[in-house]
Simulated scan of single mutants.
Amino acid sequence: MGTEILISVIKLVFGLAILVKGADLLITGASGLARRAGIPEFVIGLTLVAFGTSLPELTVNVQASLQKASEITLGNVIGSNIANILLILGIAGIIRPLSIHKTFVKKEIPLNFLSILVLFAMVSDKLLDGSSQSLVSRSEGLVLVTTFMGYLYFLAAFLERDEVEEQEVQIGYAKGTAFIVLGLAGLIFGANWTVSGGVNLALALGVSQAIIGLFLIAVGTSLPELLTSAVAAYRGNSDIAIGNVAGSNIFNVSLVLGASALVNPIPVPERVFKDLVVLFIATFLLLVSNYTGRRYTISRWEGGLFLLIYTVYALYSWYVEITQ
């Protein structure tokens, strides 16, 4: 038993490390090639950064769907979104108060609320239709992926070019292509190890896949968002920190969950509804924080509050799991 746990932990840790590095290489290569191809900077910033940091969730979930580890699939999406707001913005806000552009409050945050409501409807088959089992079906997955394409159009059509600070990235076509290939390989390989290690660890410890997906894997695959937002906060680039989280949360629900459901329909565990309520509350707190204290700012004390709430939520969920 001890050897199995050790091997699972090693696979999990190395898998997550490879995921993070793979995402970093992919973002660097893709952003460099995009700029050389003349794609507008604001499109790169609000799509590529958020999408790139969501790639670990996407690759982990597709691998989990292929391996029919469905509880990891749904738990990873919801857990990552909760961690993005409470953990990542909490840490970023503590590092430096985050000034929030009005566009994020008026457009991105409402879209986050809408994505939660859509997800709640999709996992409520028992409640809405009287079905024997709640399921995110392939047709619903197609709807989510289509919604993702609509979100990309929304960004291109409505966001102003000057909303993201432009950053020069000098990279050649050959180097950029190599970074993309290596990044994708790292994401695929890392995702396989992460899911395998997470499932085996859950079995060895007698912990449900839902808890492993909701916290361990969700936080691990959110490391790119954490690193990006923390560095952005330290450098005083609040728009990147906030936009990264808001965009990643929408990507997670639309593209990540949608693609996973297209691979295999996703059965819905009962605890999902409690976690969706926590996600809704976290998003509501993000909205309210713009109107408390300094307007359109997440202050250090609000960042600390976010982090405290996440810690209590994580400890409570773990306690409920081990006492059942």
Rank of each mutant, 00 (worst) to 15 (best):
M1R: 12
I5C: 05
I7Q: 10
L12V: 05
V13R: 05
L16T: 15
A17F: 15
I18S: 07
G22S: 07
A23F: 08
D24A: 11
L26R: 04
L26P: 02
A30N: 02
E41M: 12
E41A: 15
L46Q: 06
L46G: 09
F51Q: 00
T53A: 06
L55F: 02
N61T: 09
Q67L: 13
Q67T: 08
S80F: 01
L86W: 00
L87G: 10
I88Q: 09
G90Q: 02
A92D: 08
P97E: 12
I100M: 14
K102Q: 11
T103G: 11
F104E: 12
F104V: 09
K107H: 13
P110E: 04
P110S: 05
L117N: 04
L117P: 07
L117W: 07
L119A: 13
A121D: 03
A121C: 14
A121Y: 10
S124K: 03
S131D: 14
V136N: 08
R138M: 15
V145I: 15
V145Y: 05
T146I: 14
T147R: 04
F148V: 09
G150N: 09
L152S: 09
E163P: 01
Q167I: 13
V169F: 00
T177E: 06
A178G: 06
I180K: 07
V181E: 03
G183Y: 02
I188D: 01
I188H: 08
G190S: 01
A191T: 01
N192S: 12
S196N: 04
G197R: 00
L201K: 03
A202P: 06
L203Y: 12
L205P: 04
Q209Y: 10
I211T: 12
I211A: 08
I212Q: 01
F215Y: 05
F215T: 15
I217T: 03
T221I: 12
S222M: 10
E225F: 06
S229L: 05
G236I: 05
S238C: 09
I240A: 06
N244W: 01
F251I: 11
F251L: 08
F251G: 03
L255I: 08
L257H: 09
S260V: 08
A261S: 15
L262Y: 00
V278H: 00
L279Q: 03
L286G: 02
T292K: 04
R294I: 13
S299E: 13
R300P: 07
G303D: 03
I309E: 04
Y316M: 12
S317F: 13
W318I: 15
V320S: 11
E321D: 11
E321Y: 08
